[in-house]
Write a protein that binds this DNA or RNA. Sequence first.
RNA 1: GCUGAAGUGGUGGAAUUGGUAGACACGUUGGACUUAAAAUCCAAUGGGCAUUAUGCCCGUGCGGGUUCAAGUCCCGCCUUCAGUACCA
Length: 1021
Amino acid sequence: MSKYHFNEIEAKWQKYWAENGTFHAQNDSDKPKYYVLDMFPYPSGAGLHVGHPLGYIASDVYARFKRHQGYNVLHPMGYDSFGLPAEQYAIQTGQHPADTTRVNIEGGVDKKGNKIAGYRNQLDKIGFSFDWSREVRTSNPDYYKWTQWIFIQLFESWYDNASDKARSIEALISIFAEEGNEHVDASCDDDTPSFTAEEWNGYADAEQQKILLKYRLTYLAETEVNWCPELGTVLANDEITNGVSERGGHPVIRKKMMQWSMRITAYAQRLLDDLAKIDWPQPLKDSQTNWIGRSEGASVTFKVMPNVTSSAVEKGHTIEVFTTRPDTIFGASFMTLAPEHDLVAKITTPEQKAEVEAYVEATAKRSERDRMADVKTISGVFTGAYAEHPFTGNPVPIWIGDYVLAGYGTGAVMAVPCGDQRDYDFAKHFGIEIPNIFEGIDISEEAFADKENTIIANSDFINGLNYKDATRKVIDALEAKGQGKGKINYRLRDAVFSRQRYWGEPFPVYYKNGLPQMIDLEHLPLELPAVEKYLPTETGEAPLGRASVWAWDTNLNKVVSNDLVSPSGVEGSESDNGVYPLELNTMPGWAGSSCYMFRYMDPKNPEMLASEDALKYWGNVDLYIGGSEHATSHLLYSRFWVKFLYDRAVLPVDEPAKKLINQGMILGESAFVHRALPILLSPQKGIKELNFLPFQIFASEDLILNGTFREERNTKHAEAASLVWDWMLENGYEHAEGDAIEFNFQAIHADVSYVNTSNELDREGFMGWRPEFQNAKFINTDDGAFKVSREVEKMSKSKYNVVNPDEICFQYGADTLRMYEMFLGPLDQAKPWSTAGITGVHSFLKKLWKLYHGGAEGAFQVSDATPTKDNLKTLHKTIKKVEEDIENFSFNTSVSTFMIAVNELTQQNCNSREILEPLLVLISPYAPHIAEELWNKLGHTQSIATAAFPKYDASHLVESSKEYPISFNGKMRFKLELPLDMSKEDIEAAVMAHERTQQQLDGRTPKKVIVVPGKIVNIVG
RNA sequence: GCUGAAGUGGUGGAAUUGGUAGACACGUUGGACUUAAAAUCCAAUGGGCAUUAUGCCCGUGCGGGUUCAAGUCCCGCCUUCAGUACCA
């Protein structure tokens, strides 16, 4: 009797695959290549839950399928192992994040004594076909050496708009030396000065370095951050609520800090354009498009007027604004600056000073997020200053308002209240004039923003023109006056690249005379220094400020003690000994994840990110699977870096991934027990909450309705009340006339591991879960069961609804887990996990096993019998459907298809090798262990992974007749079997002649008969 | 507010270009096997009304529309989830 011992089978084949390197990809092969990649995980200490492997299973099915199709498949896995949780754990426990990270990956025991299974062990149990010989970890110095190297490449590059690509900084220096920067069209800082070749050549080295920094693709700049003085750290918007830190509730201020930035804006247009050539989900493309936020319009320069009421105002200021509606310029009746705008302090009149300052201060206290969420409140202050309208010369009052954001455009708008609702609301609120410049439009209620139907009026030289013509004329006129030009604006901002953290890549940067210098590649990696604590320093420096050995010796080319740093650090001075301080910040999380896909191609190469041959052979990722939450972070930054490395001829491709699929989240089914909170209702003593009882009372879910015991269950109410009374009377309470006990119910999370598939609670387990439950009393249903209620929520430790894949593998097997995850529903959709349903998939695998074990006593039996027509039909329709499903990533429907196939073949008593052998190959991407085992029993010595995918033969599915649905007025009434080659006329005749048709018509004559051959017949009338 | 996705039995979900709504599972009920349980197998299972069978009506979030025919297409709503940036 051969039973399906999945645990043994799975362990056996996992071992076999590992020992034989079954899934090692070759960098040279005659086969076509295919690269399947998962977004690599952050190895958290909590381990995997069943939601994590969903995408990995899908990609694994696809990778295995592609191998069967004859591709040389690269399917690697690694870890995005730098990150905040490890650092915070290090702060709490003092353990080095490298140690805890290793334990999280490889398993072990943490300092608190918790046993950690380890990501790798958990993943291995699921039977993935990863090529582990290519594993990368971003926190590994051998890996982050290349992250540092890419950073240096960015530093050594500038973006040439003329050739629309990044070029070496050396090339820029030669241009400067020969002709200055007059003809250079580059993406650079706004405040870059103009200079001639003579001037350039005359600059001191430091001056030249400063100018070059304005061109480099990564550069130092003052950036505003959320600074929390109490915590000594910078906080993300997420970490701030109502202006105070989420942790500890400390005040947060906006502070400028010198930080590294990435000039991603140089790539805005290409990032936008190239979306067209990648096969990514449309919603994801849309969010990148919106994030980049291209808008066409004009920049307009307004001159600030000498103030009529005060001579104290500075003169000669200009305000640059960006507008998408230059055609409405005659409707501009005021201007609004962001409160943070540099000019605010300079142009505000003395009379308005106090009010403006108070407003600016109030705004600074609000987080950016708060400010944006609040759409209703209109606020602002008049600065007292006026600007001159470029065409009419009229004075335009300058206001500040927090609806204008410093970070977008120029941080200033020309307000056209008749054409923009926000400007309109602002004008209405403050009683500012709202001139109407639209032909035949009523603006007494709201602004008119419909560009397409605009005809301009009251606007001098553009009267009667539409949006397009008026815009062109205004831009021409502005250019003629030197007060503006057509401009394309992007919402995308340069990306801040510095983090004040320990657990990230150190910058390969030291500072000589305050200017950043790169460490040469041959001396990389620059490894993280030891620190005694992982917190920022008391003086507010980043954690690396605690390192005592963190200076760069340019003579020895190594890290040396801080004590050796040149006292002055000025090059060439007597005290300059060639030792300089190193950068204290580290790189952000996305640094290590932007180009990791290329490192897998040649992961051990000490000379290069990956060899030219490997890069050329593998190209880019053919299929990338991951969550949509990375749409505007990882996936945008990665595209940016890949384009950059393409420009600099490091990579042969300019996109990381050709095709991308988002997997949806698997939600948890939380369990709730209902706690009955007793209340004493006493005519003498009033209402009293009995919250001092030494036990808690829980009632089965089905006894409760609308927060109280169901009416028909008043015996249950009595049962609960008597528990309370017994204790009360024992403890000296005297029952008085009219006393009654009522209950309020409170739902609390119970750990799902104490709940079975019928929603019944393991009461003993639950009582042992937490001390406060140890004396719990249960009000059960009549049959003695205690039920919990269920609710679908995000799967998370804090909701006690986490289901561990290891346990599923132990109980049902990895093949069952894999198939069930695929069976749950469409890959890209969010769906709840319910362990209850898993038995269906599990018994399918048992049936599959039985299909191959039809011999005496359940012995393995496959015959060489010629398959029947039905056998072949079942097989080939399965091949067709499964192949289509995998190509369409419709994995859930192919699992159904397998179930149907096995049910049919069992019914047909099929044991023919000609059918059962190809069937295994079809199933093996989903359930590789059982397929491998049965394949082996069939006498194969090679892994099933090497078998070719069966060929679909349409001839087995040819039908000669069709069971036509015969419908009347669109409603199907009966079916009729007719030959498929029957003509329309004959079909109609056959249907009309049928007695059921006559019965349906009941003597009426049909108005019309619709016959769709091969499909349907519909009789109307 | 905006953008995107989604609403189908008790549950997860099927339904290729409009053409038999509810495939495949879970659950439930009944039955077989068993001393019993588990496992396994068989049958029924959208709601309602009928019944000797044959049947009939209603049904894919709501309200309209197009069509011989609508879960699918169009218009207008509602709800849920996700993302988010008052974008000049």
